[in-house]
Amino acid sequence: MPVTPSIPGPPNAAQQQLHEAYARLHRYGPEFGGDEEGNHGLTNHGPMAVEVLLRRGLDVDVDCWLDRYVRRLAELPRGTRPITEGTWGHALGDHHRLPDWTLWFADQLRDRPWAELLAEWWPRLLPGIVAGSTHGVIRVGHAVRALRATGPSGTAGPALRELAHGLAFWAARYRPLPGQRRPAGHLSAADALDAVPRLATQDGFIAHRVGRLATTPGWPHSLRAIRPARTVDVPARLAELVDAATRSYLVRGHGSPVLLVHTATAPNAVLHTLPVLPEPLWVPSFDAAWAAAAAITATYAPTRRAPRPDVTPAPAGDDPVTEVLHRAADHGDEHVIKFTDTAVEAYERAHDPDLLAAALRAGELITG
């Protein structure tokens, strides 16, 4: 199975296919199956999953994959009233304004360079990084990868609209974390994740769980416990966090197989956005990525580790990366595809087989 190099790169047939997939998916909203009180149900992972499938060159018929996937999606509602420079603050975190946010960002991206707009809105949205179970920042991260791959001579229209959809989802579901603190400790990412306190009762929608962190003993202290990052160290520190969260999934993923993949994929989205962000935003980006991973750990991860499962990335002599990507493609689940992409990147940095084993574990745990 061919595996194409990671972006950036020149425009090619795969990118054209990705843009066509984006155009098809943009008829739909970022969520489906929610309730009238605004509790979101499931997230539309279509744009993120097809970006991985096509960037990796996986042997999947993307059109057929989408044919099956879009059946579950809900169409994007019509806008109600325009967002303006003077009113956007009132619309932040209002899920009813999602279509208005989508139109706002699409209009903005027609008139301004996308990296300039992103640099303006990134610090505004960072405090609400857990928005939509972190799918806001993750979708933005995948859109940025697609835009970087397009290059100056490519047709970026569909990818720009994808960035607009990602930013709109993040803005509409914006919800600041309670008890936020700047890192000021000495722990590594792995030790800091282990030290995060857990909710006494892990039930309810994620918004309800996150709200209960305000009264969870030790929560603010756990955010401070990780070693702070300097600007020059942020890429390496984010990579360390992604690697630690991926390893943790291997022995804790059973607690919530779907939600816990985001402890790794959300920081990875931030990591891949860094190259287009001004350096003064790097340290706040690390702090927010850490807070997101800690919040999902606190609200969904079990306290006790499970025994390491007996999963083998590949038979002796075979390429383990190709094998793990092949299994994710065959599995077909959007969470498995995205987590495997992140786990493979982590393995290519650290060459730790447990990182690939975590991707295989996700394939075992996520069954439908």
Rank of each mutant, 00 (worst) to 15 (best):
V3W: 06
V3P: 00
P5H: 07
I7Q: 08
P11S: 07
A14T: 09
L18N: 02
H19R: 15
L25N: 12
H26R: 14
E31V: 04
G41F: 12
L42F: 13
G46E: 00
A49V: 13
R55W: 07
V60P: 06
V60Q: 07
R68C: 15
P77S: 01
R81Q: 15
G86P: 01
G93K: 14
P99I: 12
D100W: 09
R112E: 14
P113L: 00
L126S: 02
R145W: 09
A149L: 01
A149P: 05
A149K: 03
T155W: 07
H165Y: 15
P178F: 02
R182N: 10
P183N: 10
D194A: 12
A195H: 10
V196G: 09
P197W: 05
G204N: 02
V210F: 12
G211F: 11
T216S: 04
G218W: 13
V234Y: 08
L238N: 10
L241P: 04
A245W: 09
S248C: 03
T263V: 03
T265Q: 01
L281G: 06
S285V: 03
A291R: 13
T297H: 13
T297G: 11
R308Q: 10
V311L: 07
P313R: 04
D319T: 07
D333A: 10
H335N: 08
I337W: 02
A343W: 08
D352S: 09
A357I: 08
A358V: 03
R361F: 08
I366T: 02
